[in-house]
Design a protein around this nucleic acid. Sequence first.
DNA 1: GTCTATACACCGATAGAC
DNA 2: GTCTATCGGTGTATAGAC
Lengths: 186, 186
Amino acid sequence: MDKKEKLLQAALKLFVEFGFHNTPTSKIALEAGIANGTLFYFFPTKDDLVKALYLDLKSQLAAHTAETIRDQTDLRAMMQGYYSATLTWALKNRTAFRFMQQFNSSPYLHQLAEEEMQKHIRPLLSLLEKGMHDKIIKQMDVDIIFTLISGHTFSINQYLVAKQLTKPEQDKVIHDTFNLLWDMIT
Amino acid sequence: MDKKEKLLQAALKLFVEFGFHNTPTSKIALEAGIANGTLFYFFPTKDDLVKALYLDLKSQLAAHTAETIRDQTDLRAMMQGYYSATLTWALKNRTAFRFMQQFNSSPYLHQLAEEEMQKHIRPLLSLLEKGMHDKIIKQMDVDIIFTLISGHTFSINQYLVAKQLTKPEQDKVIHDTFNLLWDMIT
DNA sequence: GTCTATACACCGATAGAC
DNA sequence: GTCTATCGGTGTATAGAC
């Protein structure tokens, strides 16, 4: 693993534990086993590091969901793939998901270009539009449907993280709550 | 308005714009029209100010929802009251709601006593348990139902804030999405 | 590319007068 | 209670050697 990767990993761990602030760059470098000044060779400012980390994790998640639904053609199966892929990724990468939440509701978010924000949600939006056109999904503003799905996913993740469930129990929750969601939007 | 109130208000405004960090106490005092040192007379530390602000806003919201559903007896009407009261409060107090989101997904949250966290959600939880006992609400873990309601409310707020809707349009969205929610949990 | 050493600005908190 | 003045600690970022 190269030093850049090490820095991102160290930053993630510390940011989630202490917050963006209360995490000096010196601690990040220390945790990564890298000299203080070297951090600024890879990331010109601390803000750049924070944003790079966010974008990196977002790409990882997107890659994982895309991979999961690759072979699906049916809309319901695709949506379910999206849903469970997101949740299993979130469970496997809890600190990553927590960091993304934290970032999402911070003023940092507005520092990112609109384009970079849209890039990863575009596929899901297209899926919804198609489903609506085919009269499978309720005829509502597609943004409402989208926001409902996000909120649902987000909150079930909170639940799964809070409870200590076995893998089969987790799968059952994911399965059952997807049905609730699907019934709501169709 | 007393100085303490002025400080809370100034802090709210600046925290939402710049984040907890990137908002020095000096700026807060300046915005409140109060001397730097005086801030520490009211709040021993900056953290105390942050936490006090959160608790204060949470109480305001709770008071508003409680007031709204006071005369309701029917479960559905009470739930709808809760839902729309929360959303209208959030729309009227956007910065307040944004701050609470920010706080909720920050490490600060863990510094608050469990008791203080539970205090305001207890009434809603009781309502749900009663509804489940009366077989109105689906027989699931009550925490799932609760988290679903929170997530739903949260995400519809995001939607309402993002879109620029007229009051009647807002009311329609709130009405329609409550029906979706209610159908999902009953 | 990576390190050490350090500049220097900034901020939370205190002291003490009124 | 409120102000002014200030200190000590800390953190981002740079300089410069290797």
